[in-house]
């Protein structure tokens, strides 16, 4: 589902943020991406979401080569990827419901279907009773869950999360991770960037370790 082949990324006038990274996540895999800050975790996720372009090598998502996705097609490509941010990035002047509905509105669904899907997504993150509230009235954990609901409401085949538990205490982190596992169980390919090694160890999923832009270790070893 996510295939990296000798991918390198050099920012203009800077060092190599990623160098010669290759790995393959199959459909329905769940994996962690870890490493020190500055190791290239964010860059790797940005390449998948087409926020940045590779300098060398190629990335295939669901069999589609990202080099072939023109600027005009990027929005449509991104609709197949749910992204969760550390700072949740909600629209603060809109209700929880409207925030979660946004991807569906963008996709042009009709109102009834939007209502149904938003409720379903909010139900999965246990926030159904808060749909009319503004994000600012929610706790950090709840805000993050709204972000997750928004990322999954469109049922994207790929879910990316950048430090989703960075601002949360261990208990809440565990809860969030359990949610990711649930999505993974229904076939979503999940890639989570995190430096919370304790948590990663407990979760026992595949782990990619980045160091200074290089893929320095994988647990368990890739069998293909």
């Amino acid at each position: 589902m996510i295939l990296f082949e000798n991918v390198s990324k050099t920012y203009p006038g800077s060092h190599e943020a990623l160098s010669n990274v290759s790995f393959h996540l199959h459909r329905g895999d769940m994996a962690f991406l870890t490493g020190h800050s500055g190791a290239g975790k964010s860059t790797l996720l940005k390449l998948i979401a087409l926020i940045e372009r590779t300098t060398r090598g190629q990335i295939l998502i669901g069999g589609q080569n990202l080099a072939g996705v023109t600027k005009r097609k990027i929005p449509y490509f991104r609709r197949n990827i749910g992204i969760i941010f550390q700072d949740h990035r909600l629209l603060l002047d809109r209700t929880v419901f409207d925030n979660v509905a946004l991807p569906l509105i963008i996709a042009g669904l009709d109102y009834r279907e939007i209502t149904r899907k938003v409720r379903a997504a909010l139900d999965k993150v246990n926030l159904l009773n808060k749909e009319k509230q503004l994000p600012a009235t929610l706790s950090t954990g709840e805000q993050q869950r709204v972000g997750i609901a928004r990322a999954v409401v469109n049922k994207p085949p790929v879910l990316l999360a950048d430090e989703p538990t960075g601002n949360l205490d261990p208990e809440l982190s565990e809860e969030i991770m359990k949610m990711f596992e649930q999505f993974n169980q229904v076939g979503v390919t999940v890639l989570i960037a995190s430096h919370d090694l304790e948590l990663i160890k407990r979760m026992q999923h595949r782990t990619l370790v980045l160091g200074k832009g290089k893929l320095i270790a994988q647990f368990p070893e890739e069998d293909s």
Binding site: R79, I83, I106, A107
Partner: peptide, 14 residues
């Protein structure tokens, strides 16, 4: 807001 909506797949037209 524009950045966020672009990240979740909004076209320029939208």
């Amino acid at each position: 807001e524009i950045v966020i909506t672009k990240l979740i797949g909004a076209t320029n037209r939208f």
